[in-house]
Design a protein around this nucleic acid. Structure first.
Lengths: 231, 231
DNA sequence: CGGGATATTGATTGATTTCAATGTGAGTGG
DNA sequence: CCACTCACATTGAAATCAATCAATATCCCG
């Protein structure tokens, strides 16, 4: 079931200038500390599966460099990306026994993997770590809730605006955003088609809200226009 | 900001036969136990606000009888219901300091409220309780993730089918489902309009997949047809 | 037995999808 | 160094699903 494309046991230093989230900004908190201690960095190639839906939860993950996506697919192939994971982000932190999502590298990525049982043993002793696990999961839940509002109630233009602001915020609000993901990934994250995403970008560009020097680089020219769309 | 319609300090016994989820089925686990010990049952009238988005998290909640909804609204009033809470369900269990959602009673409801600080103090001492807080939040996250797939990628018919199966499962898979919520609530949960929800019900009825003895009572006649739509 | 809220049904519109080219850019090999 | 190619992205035209606008219909509740 799992197509293992990862190069195991090869702790590789993060590349000098990864596309999005150039600064790993590893938070100094119990979970990050635990990852420093118990986590092993593994290299995943572009599109490599990190884990699959339904598989037992054996590890927790933290992006060191690169980017990952977690998603669900319907039987006929329709895909919904639940979240993008950028450097510093922890994912796969599930309390249940099996993964509810699949995870893949979006680009070549280095991901720190910590064994679930180790982290759980540590959490059973360290109250702060246990609390932090909860806190991180609760944070993901809030993100998911915000994303439900987007998927259920926002127009295409509003979705794209929200996406751009989110990406910009996640790389310290720089106005030139370098996207690691394809239009298909964006579409599947926003619940749209690639054509609609593309058209919306063009439309925002014609209103001088953004600029598209290349398909993966987007300059936010009128942030308040985007914020207005963010409702 | 908070329209306090709740009748505080009135521990009321759960009604004999609440509409949906007639059996409170309070789980025997650390959180439920903590609610038994530290929680106070409060009566909320139909549409009464339980807490509002942005308010500080001061309590955690468990539905004793009745039902509640948690939702977000856009500035122009568009609403997305993130979840319905039925007897036994815990909600408002947020690790952050403010509520990301608003919560209201859907029908008259008795809700057990436990003070956040009390539960957190208990969790700091009791590893099992801390683990259970995490576990419950993780479960909510999985539900939210499933709901994202629905909102982002499913057709109206599939959404309604998923909703009916979900409601049925939550009341022990009985085929006659008694809905506590209005069409507007259902629409806002599924990211549709009331008209589309209504038309889809009618359409499923004409295919003999369901039966609608009244607008709030739905009989699932062909569960496998619904499951097929659930993809 | 009203009367107001809630739900259903109908007609039409419209945003997004689908189908279909066309354009662009990065990597490859001649 | 430059054609060539393949994947990815953009653009256009048509179709479609759900939303909107607009009547009824039904159900509570007083």
């Amino acid at each position: 079931m799992l197509i293992q494309t990862a190069t195991h046991g090869t702790p590789i230093r993060p590349p000098v200038a990864p596309p999005l989230g150039a600064l790993p900004q590893l938070r100094h908190d119990p979970v990050s500390d635990a990852f420093q201690a118990a986590g092993v960095p593994i290299r995943f190639e572009r599109d490599a599966e990190i884990y699959g839906e339904g598989e037992p939860v054996e590890h927790f993950y933290q992006v060191v460099s690169g980017a990952a996506r977690t998603y669900k697919v319907l039987s006929d192939g329709r895909r919904q990306i639940g979240a993008f994971h950028l450097p510093g982000d922890v994912f796969g932190l599930e309390a249940g026994s099996t993964h509810a999502f699949s995870a893949e590298a979006i680009v070549g990525a280095t991901i720190r993997m910590a064994s679930r049982s180790t982290l759980e043993t540590m959490a059973a002793r360290d109250v702060a770590l246990a609390r932090d696990n909860w806190s991180r999961t609760a944070e993901k839940l809030q993100q998911a809730e915000g994303h439900m509002l987007l998927l259920g109630r926002k127009t295409a233009e509003e979705r794209v605006a929200s996406f751009l602001l989110e990406m910009s915020e996640r790389v310290h609000n720089v106005s030139m955003v370098e996207l690691p993901m394809s239009r298909q990934d964006i579409a599947d994250y926003l619940g749209l088609t690639i054509e609609t995403v593309s058209r919306t970008f063009t439309q925002l560009e014609s209103k001088a809200t953004i600029e598209l020097p290349s398909s993966r680089r987007i300059a936010l020219r009128n942030r308040s226009a985007l914020q207005r769309l963010n409702a």
